[in-house]
Amino acid sequence: MAARVEACTPCHGDKGQGTNDVYFPRLAGKPAGYLYNQLLAFRNGRRKYPPMNYLLEFLSDPYLQDIANYFASQHPPLPPQAATEVSQQVLQHGEALVTRGDAARAITACASCHGPALTGMEPGIPGLLGLRPNYVSAQLGAWRYGTRTAKAPDCMQIVAGHLTEADVTALAAWLATRPAPENAAPAPKGAYALPFPCGSEPN
């Protein structure tokens, strides 16, 4: 399988650990169901990024599942935390949004779906650790502008719609300061209840 996915490695790293390019995400260890959903979305044009759309266009569902399983089963170490450029106050705002949300503005805490340890949940919810702030920020923007969509109900589109630019900067920065947890594996399916229905994580 490693030879078959060599086309992925210049951008995502040979084990899916990510590369120096801050916009290309780590794939390793994310739930296979999440990775498969993304591969389908790129192939079918629901998630728009022309280089990915082009590469996957004529690959079959079972093959995309194999590719997803391969990267889900890779466990290179999480990258060391990068020094942050934002102020302590911004980080505190980010921490509040990720861990507690903001009920007054109908913003649900990231942790309520992505897990108390932010390592995600099988089969469809990705962990948020090991991602660079630029990537997280670009994805939240893509949801707001409709270039990234997921199966309905597309809960991330709703959540992203409530966030301001400042919120995005703060939460992305705080996430990047988190140390690697003891156990980076996603929580098993059904480990906790979601606050609202999610097309990517059917009950």
Partner: peptide
């Protein structure tokens, strides 16, 4: 990537 076909369901790809 060449296409997935019955005769070659899991093609090898050229990196960008």
């Amino acid at each position: 990537y060449p296409p997935s076909t019955a005769g070659n369901p899991k093609p090898y790809g050229m990196p960008p």
